[in-house]
Design a protein around this nucleic acid. Structure first.
Lengths: 210, 210
DNA sequence: TAGCTTTGCTAACGGTGTTAATAACAATAA
DNA sequence: TTATTGTTATTAACACCGTTAGCAAAGCTA
């Protein structure tokens, strides 16, 4: 019975075509203006076929959110590969997190857009576990060398992530907000300062581990 | 000519009725489902009158964003009033920031919702300056006692804000994400841990100032 | 009272997510 | 080969949305 197999394959192919078209729209027009109808138009199918592949619009966006976390986890794992000192691992992961966010703005915004992920969606993102592990590993290693009493790796993981996300999202929403009042129009400063802030924050974080 | 005065007053009154109705809708149904038509229905006017008071839907939301920053700046100013030690001022401002965010979720989400504030809106929020001043004051004071070489108050202000916003937004988007895997369903932990993270983060931040 | 300005309305345009009813099709059974 | 079944895709509708053009009503001035 290869028939059902072929049907499965064809169905899968339409599914990926939907995702591809959706992503193209998001990249070119922004995720705000992404719509089911545009996708249907792009893949030359009628609207309801999309609903036979995804429960609703948010389910499509969730798919990208998942993939975003996967890519982020990989980026961090790649960054620290080959580096032995735990503190340095943390430093490069911080930079990698920052770089990922700004190299993949659309992903990052979908991953954290306040309205998009509903409360229960978070538990349905398996890649979050990978992210968790990659970070935690280095944190435990860094603390292990210092022998800090009452060290809570989960707490430090939260701190690490919070700092990075705050830094990124404040600089992503609007560059103006992060600009020094006196240096308006200084384009060099606009990109240089946030990276200095990143270094500063990571530095005092790592200090707090030891 | 008291006629134009009265007209002005009446116009102003409609304006506040629009904002009141809008806020009520946002509180009861969430800002996602807020719509011009619902507001028009609530104030018993037709839709176009709203457009004679506000340029568009976003302009109404921006109004709440502005007020949110104003309230936040006041909350921080209130929190540190009467406290003399700069480090302690920073600590209580951190707590005040956190408390404000969760006591006024709707405001906070409007203030930072990634899709809502466009790039140029940031410069149109005067209360941001107040927020800036209130925080910076204590930062400079805290550093002044320590005499750190190469101290950049603007950089530290960025760090301070970033850490807090990251902490808040990660815990606000979905409580599950911030939960320790092993302690699923432990309701005590769900509220207690983030506050410990807050303390931890603030602690190492203040350490970095001296 | 006639004319002018302001104000508010209806109705429409072009969108959106979502779904019920229906036609077209491919695969099986007689 | 024809009839029957089950799947798939379509049309068309529902109920919304932001926004605006055109028009009627009311208020004020002269």
């Amino acid at each position: 019975m290869g028939i059902t197999d072929r049907r499965q394959r064809q169905k899968e192919e339409v599914r990926t075509r939907i995702l591809d078209a959706a992503w193209e729209i998001i990249l070119s027009e922004g995720w705000q203006s992404f719509s089911i109808r545009k996708v249907a138009d792009a893949i030359e199918y009628s609207v309801p076929v999309i609903y036979s592949h995804f429960e609703n619009k948010d389910a499509i966006l969730l798919e990208f959110s998942k993939k975003g976390f996967q890519l982020l986890a990989e980026a961090l794992a790649d960054a620290k590969r080959g580096i032995h000192e735990a503190a340095e691992q943390i430093r490069v992961m911080g930079r990698a997190y920052w770089d990922f966010a700004f190299a993949n703005k659309e992903y990052y915004q979908l991953m954290f857009g306040l309205g998009i992920p509903t409360c229960d969606t978070a538990s349905r993102i398996p890649a979050l576990t990978d992210f968790n592990h990659v970070v935690m590993e280095s944190l435990v290693a860094a603390a292990g060398t210092g022998k800090v009493p009452g060290f809570d790796p989960w707490l430090k993981y939260q701190s690490f992530w919070s700092m990075l996300h705050g830094l990124v999202s404040i600089n992503m929403v609007s560059p103006e907000r992060a600009e020094k009042p006196g240096s308006a129009g200084n384009h060099h400063d606009r990109t240089a300062l946030p990276k200095k802030v990143l270094d500063d924050v990571m530095c005092s974080f790592i200090q707090g581990l030891k």
